[in-house]
Amino acid sequence: MTTVNMTVNGRKVSGEVSDRTLLSQFLRENLNLTGTHVGCDTSQCGACVVHVDGKAIKSCTTLAAQMDGTSVTTIEGLANGADLHPVQAAFREHHGLQCGFCTPGMIMTAVDMIERAKASGRKLDEKTIRAELEGNICRCTGYHNIVRAIEAAAAAMA
């Protein structure tokens, strides 16, 4: 067992977990933040993506203990109170989700993608967006409207 301390969605949290606990398990089971989903065992579907110290990572491929001392943002912490994050708003506006299961990971990936592009001064064109979504699988939308949502959010965040 080990004690992990993190800041999750701006709140300091602490938990006693076994060393093998994945970050995704810690979030879902210890903190009841069930918006982070697990859809595969091989680090490919991306339903589990959260931000650690501002960077997108796969929480199902990371031990909670490895993340001791970090600041974690999950889908539950993205909106500012009742104000949706521009990426959340764009997913709704452009019908970028259907069953909603991959959506938290998609949105967290999209936020990271847009912020990285902004920081490096790159414009996100469709080809780049599709390439950057390599680690997120959606079975419902065919990606068409996810791409539209990310394009729109990138414009809104410019």
Binding site: R28, L33, T34, G35, T36, H37, V38, T74, I75, E76, L78, A79, L84, Q88, F91, R92, E93, H95, L97, G100, F101, T103, P104, I107
Partner: peptide, 19 residues
């Protein structure tokens, strides 16, 4: 019409069986 159900999904509040 924009989807009524989206609010919970985009904020991580959907409730699936494993939740």
């Amino acid at each position: 019409v924009k989807r009524k159900e989206d609010q919970r999904f985009i904020t991580g509040k959907g409730r699936y069986t494993d939740d």
